[in-house]
């Protein structure tokens, strides 16, 4: 059954996430072909990983003044409203039929360890096309200074059973 378009405009959040240095390192390690751990696997970074993503000394000397997060680290926290939307009981979505169709991020600032990131999400659109339901959620994340650091557009595609 298609999702009712009356839910366009429904909001989720705000959710609050504090960026941590080790999580930022783990994310960078996992993307770069390593193991997301600074313990069991030791602290040797994967080959060719940019030091500004894990090395505090390199970060301090960079134009950013600290280690920064990999550009799409924002998925760890900005996904919260999207995850809430796809699990919203009012939408009755079978998660086994759901695929992530499209993704867009507009990145306005880098993320530093200790940043407190507040994300609010809004159902932007709901429609049916080619026997699939589309659910589009937009998110906006601000840091502790009130600056927008990232905007996301998340598109879920639900195949009909």
């Amino acid at each position: 059954m298609p999702i009712d378009r009356k839910y366009i405009g429904k909001t989720y959040g705000p959710t609050v996430y504090t960026a941590g240095l080790e999580k930022m390192r783990e994310f960078a390690f996992a993307v770069a072909g390593g193991v997301p751990s600074m313990g069991f696997s030791g602290s040797t970074p994967p080959a060719d990983l940019n030091p500004v993503l894990y090395d505090t000394a390199a970060g301090a000397q960079s134009t950013y003044g600290s280690v920064i997060a990999f550009p799409t680290f924002c998925v760890t926290f900005a996904i919260a409203p999207f995850a809430m939307a796809v699990a919203d009981p009012e939408f009755n979505i079978n998660l086994l039929m759901l695929v992530h169709g499209e993704q867009e991020f507009e990145i306005l600032d880098v993320i530093h360890p200790g940043d407190v990131l507040t994300t609010l999400g809004t159902v932007k659109d709901i429609f049916e096309k080619a026997a699939k339901d589309f659910l589009i959620v937009t998110t906006e994340t601000k840091n502790q200074h009130g600056n927008v650091v990232v905007r996301g557009t998340w598109t879920a595609v639900i195949r009909h059973g």
Partner: peptide, 8 residues
Amino acid sequence: PGRVTKVR
């Protein structure tokens, strides 16, 4: 990695 402003 700090230069990326948009991904789609």
